[in-house]
Amino acid sequence: MKYARYWLWPLAILATALLQSTVVPYLAIGWAKPDVILVIVVLVGLLYGPAQGALGGLCAGLLEDLFSGRFIGLFGLTRMLAGYLAGLVERRVYKEPFMVPMATSFVATVVCETLTYVILRLFGLAPGFGRSLIHVIGPAAVYNAIAAPILYRPLRRLKKETDKGTGVHA
């Protein structure tokens, strides 16, 4: 029962996926909307490290793939990379609650969405890079960077909650 509280994470990711497909479209400015699932993955990496970030990203991405019902593995792969990259920051940077989540989320979104673009381009489905940068990658990076510090505190609290009784301290 040591890790029993970790079920909260899959629950949080499932709830986020549900919100992403129902509520988040209402937050869109033009066609740009935040990718809360990606932000959560980045923050998991930032709080736990690269291995957990990659695992969280893989699970959340595969769930997103199931919701999309297309290219199963596309978001699993790109979110896994985002979680891993954010996890690398966890080891190197002091975790203050504002600039670090913001900058990490911005960079991870750019890398992750650029990889998504490259894969879609390989399948002949993406338009020119400039267009994707203006309409998807750029707005998503800005939007996610704003969302990251807002979600950081509740997730850090969730981490403390899940760490209780496991002997791990945040």
Binding site: S21, T22, D35, I37, F67, S68, R70, E113
Partner: peptide, 14 residues
């Protein structure tokens, strides 16, 4: 309409 695709790359509704 009860949902949209979660990502910003595809365009579909449920």
């Amino acid at each position: 309409v009860i949902a949209r695709n979660p990502d910003s790359w595809f365009s579909q509704i449920i």
